[in-house]
């Protein structure tokens, strides 16, 4: 009993040391970049996943639990993409960031969701029952998340609410402006057809009027079997499709194997989240990079 009392008191005393800044722990690097832009000098931000990692399969390392134990705000993607985050939050034993508390922010709330399955069965692959969870690939959804975030930061730190709001106005103006530029550039393309590895570019295609004409995965979460690859290769040749987009966490070799029969085909390794490398260090930079590379590949 004495041991328990000692551990409890010791833990409480040391954990109660206050932070001058709000500590924000985000599931994905896109949220972290937005939180930095909105929170500025009054937040300390980190992300659990990295930009080059598959958000479906993040290792729930115990070190993340230790980080979340001190957090004032946890930002999750929701829609069952990052269930590992709920596991980490629960085990952080931090009452401020549990579901339903002001320190828990599900960024998907208020986002117009695409690809909501009409028939829910695993026979159709690893479907997300609430719809496609990769909504951050539309920059306008980034603006929506930034708005939600500034309101939540203001609620947690009312003293700096005006500062967060001003940062939001600057940041959203920048993203809206860039969105118009990116859209204008891609609107100039005649051929807008692309093939992706996984069905995670739906929001990007929706934002920039691209046409997704196939996926390497026959169904979400299912590794491409040879029969599907052969059919896809024939489709690429028949329809003269120029581009396959592969995420950095999938093997580009699976796209490159089509180039033997389709020499004009380009396999683009494009990040679906920011922070994977220096060129795509921010949310904004990721779109800049992706739009530029995609435009160059499709323009001829």
């Amino acid at each position: 009993m004495k041991i328990i009392i000692f551990l409890v008191v010791f833990t409480r005393v040391l954990f109660s040391v206050g932070h001058a800044k709000l500590m924000v722990v985000c599931a994905l690097p896109d949220f972290a970049d937005i939180a930095k832009n909105i929170g500025g000098q009054f937040v300390e931000v980190s992300a659990v996943a990295k930009g080059n990692e598959d958000p479906h399969f993040i290792d729930p390392k115990p070190s993340f639990i230790a980080r979340l134990a001190h957090a004032d705000l946890a930002v999750v993607n929701g829609m069952e993409l990052d269930q590992w985050m709920d596991y980490l939050i629960e085990n952080s034993r931090n009452p401020r960031i549990q579901k339903g508390q002001s320190g828990y922010l599900d960024a998907s709330v208020g986002i117009p969701i695409l690809d909501i399955p009409t028939e829910l069965t695993r026979a159709k692959g690893d479907l997300h029952p609430q719809g496609n969870p990769h909504y951050m690939l539309n920059p306008l959804n980034g603006v929506r998340v930034a708005d939600t975030m500034q309101k939540r930061l203001a609620a947690l730190d009312p003293q700096h609410a005006a500062y967060f709001q001003a940062n939001f106005r600057t940041y959203s103006a920048l993203l809206n402006q860039k969105q118009l530029e990116w859209k204008k550039l891609l609107d100039g393309l005649k051929d807008r057809r692309v093939i992706t590895y996984h069905r995670n570019w739906t929001y990007f295609a929706d934002a920039f009027n691209l046409e997704l004409v196939g996926e390497l995965e026959p169904k979400p979460g299912i590794t491409p079997p040879p029969s599907h690859m052969v059919a896809l290769s024939q489709k690429i040749a028949r329809e003269k499709i120029k581009v396959i987009i592969i995420d950095p966490f999938h093997s580009s070799a699976e796209g490159e194997c089509f180039q033997k029969d389709n020499p004009r085909l380009q396999v683009l390794v494009l990040p679906s989240a920011s922070g994977g490398d220096a060129q795509t260090a921010s949310y904004n930079a990721m779109f800049d990079y992706n739009v530029r590379v995609l435009y160059a590949a499709l323009k001829d």
Partner: peptide, 9 residues
């Protein structure tokens, strides 16, 4: 519970 150490404990 968690111990207040710089790593997960």
């Amino acid at each position: 519970g968690l111990l207040p150490l710089p790593f997960f404990s």
